[in-house]
């Protein structure tokens, strides 16, 4: 391949280069205009973290009502506009209240939801541990007491043995 290095040849090369650059620019614009719409999975990944107040106890991703369908469409629209998951969730909280979230936000009194159950489990475990320990100690003390009073228990045992023997003889 031989390059034309005359001024005319260079000018033509420059024009061709500019033309290719413009074409490349168009190509990029077309690609970005045809950005794929968010998939159902992407929409549902956010939807399953939300609950519509109209359909209580039904996560948004499986809720069949018209209201929920509109919400899912809105999530799709926001994703297509480039919103992040957190931004979309915040939008829903702003518009419909924090109760739409499947997990209460970690603020204010909501912390009780996260702290109280583990605390209660911990306290329960502590109480059980203490109780078991005291029962074991009590058992050990009782066994010790039984061993110490073995001679006193003998007459009782003798009496029971005789009683059982007499009962057998009657049979």
């Amino acid at each position: 391949m031989k390059f034309d290095l005359t001024p005319r040849g260079l000018r033509i090369t420059l024009y061709v280069f500019l033309f290719a650059l413009i074409l490349a620019g168009f190509g990029t614009a077309t690609v970005s205009a045809q950005a794929p719409t968010p998939t159902d999975d992407e929409v549902n990944a956010i939807a399953k973290q939300l609950f519509c107040p109209v359909c209580e106890n039904t996560p948004l991703d499986v809720c069949p009502t018209e209201a929920c369908r509109q919400w899912r469409d809105l999530i799709r629209l926001k994703l297509a506009e480039g919103w992040t998951e957190d931004q979309i969730k915040q939008y829903f909280v702003d518009n419909y209240g924090a109760r739409v979230l499947s997990e209460p936000p970690r603020t204010g009194l909501n912390w009780l939801v996260y702290l109280v159950p583990p605390a209660l489990i911990g306290v329960g475990a502590l109480i059980l541990f203490t109780a078991f320990r005291s029962w074991r100690r009590l058992d050990a003390e009782l066994a010790e007491a039984d061993a110490g009073s073995g001679e006193e228990a003998a007459p009782d045992d003798e009496y029971i043995t005789r009683l059982e023997e007499e009962l057998r003889q009657r049979d």
């Binding site: 209660l120 502590l126 005291s134 009590l138």
Partner: peptide, 24 residues
């Protein structure tokens, strides 16, 4: 022995548990 067993749960823990229960 019984007194010893009762002493097993410290006072601060009892206050804490009752406080939590009352708060709830």
């Amino acid at each position: 022995n019984i007194q010893e067993t009762k002493r097993g749960v410290p006072l601060w823990a009892q206050i804490l548990v009752w406080g939590l229960l009352l708060g709830l």
